[in-house]
Design a protein around this nucleic acid. Structure first.
Lengths: 121, 121
DNA sequence: CTTATTGTATTAAGTCATTAATACAATAAT
DNA sequence: ATTATTGTATTAATGACTTAATACAATAAG
């Protein structure tokens, strides 16, 4: 059973989870992805929901599949690397934006972060 | 019309928006909050939805209101400050976690962030 | 006292995500 | 050829969020 919350659509959370696994290399290029039924069982969701997530991942070009061979992670490593950089940049910008919305100044943020990093997590 | 997306419940997004305004001081302690009807018109949502957001903000103790005088931001400045610190810490941890999920090492993150900060946004 | 403002409650309808239960289609494995 | 696996499609039911349209209650303001 995967950790999913009720705040956002489950299929979206699944898409993001698997996308991150692909980007980080947990799923490598060409790796086979478990069947819809198996993933659904693992995640503890309905097969229809998992199917929807798969369709979305295919639309994004992250995975591809033929009829009965199941699905595999795209061989386009460059695209994955691009996506990794893009997501990191977006994440950083979003983080900085959120912190400024809380009233934190640019200069305050780095020290706070450095402390959290050295404290380890 | 406020910037709201369809991914998550609107009332939650409103709660977060106003909570941030309180925490950052855009709404100060004791400040009066516009009426449900007025806020709903501003945001472009149904009054019921805005009402729900208000109820949630009251539950959190961020605002309080009596019958026909409307609502005001809590006078408990200490609580607001605590909440600001807590949210910042959570935000930082979440950010670091997400970056690690993308496969970024602790050491890589700070330089990336420093660059984004100095480039300004 | 009367009126306007504000919070609150109610009922109904529509949309969307999710679950559930099946069924069918294509193909790899035997 | 037969069977099992996998992807895909369909239909129905449920629940949550949202909009809509009102109505009522309390009280500040006149």
């Amino acid at each position: 059973m995967w950790k999913l919350d009720a705040d956002r659509p489950i299929y979206m959370q699944i898409v993001e989870r698997i996308e991150k696994q692909i980007i980080s290399g947990a799923y490598g290029s060409g790796d086979r992805i478990p069947s819809v039924r198996e993933l659904a069982a693992q995640a503890g969701v309905n097969p229809n929901t998992m199917q929807r997530a798969m369709t979305e991942l295919e639309r994004k070009g992250l995975i591809a599949g033929h009829r009965t061979r199941g699905r595999v992670v795209t061989e386009d490593r460059e695209m994955i690397e691009e996506r990794r950089g893009y997501m990191a940049k977006e994440m950083i910008r979003e983080f900085l934006w959120q912190m400024r919305e809380l009233g934190f100044d640019k200069e305050e943020i780095l020290p706070l972060l450095r402390q959290e990093v050295t404290d380890d997590v």
